[in-house]
Amino acid sequence: MDLVVQGLVKAFRLLLSGDPEVLEITLLTLRVSGLATLISLFLGVPLGLYLAVARFRGRELVVGAVNTGMGLPPTVVGLWVSILLWRNGPLGMLGLMYTPTAIVIAQAVIALPVVTGLTMAAVQQLSPKLRLQVLALGASPLQFWWIILREVRFGILAAVMAGLGSVISEVGASMAVGGNVRGYTRVLTTAIVLEVSKGNFDMALALGFVLMVLTYSITYALTIVQQRRRRW
């Protein structure tokens, strides 16, 4: 238990002293996971809306794939993205391996099914009568989608939180495609792994606290928004 106390004390010191390296790692984590979540939103929300409403052959296959993808193992994503980005891989000429951009790509892939799946589920919980009503009132396609989007906004917020939560906490993909390069691609989770293998458990715990405080703060802000108009 001493270790936990030491870790907490160290975490407070780190936060208060504004250790430049920890600050840099924290900012990079925010930047990378934030961008990845944004990208997954721009792709996943339209995809989720479409999958919820569209009727086409093989839809169940796609939906099943999305639902499976919600549990996509980050290490597997990391491996695939590595193979694509390696110097001698198909996208090698971009020189993206071991850069923050590579982590953003991998994390966006991880968050995409989460955002898509939760958006889709949120739409499907709406009363089917809404669709008829909106169309009967003569809404244009654009208006139709806008109304649906408005109705599921809280569900989408849940998707944002789940997506961000899944990427900010993953380590397998960041390690594989980022390489945990000091001062460049080291994020909080990979830094924690390194400190553990160096035997600096107090530092690892401290970074863990920083990560959790960070995630909680963001999620809390989003939750405030989500819960403002609760009906239950």
Binding site: L35, T37, I218, V225
Partner: peptide, 16 residues
């Protein structure tokens, strides 16, 4: 609200 939420995320991303 949605825009606000997006802004929170965007600032988080840009802040970094």
């Amino acid at each position: 609200y949605l825009i606000f939420a997006l802004c929170v995320l965007a600032t988080a991303a840009l802040f970094g």
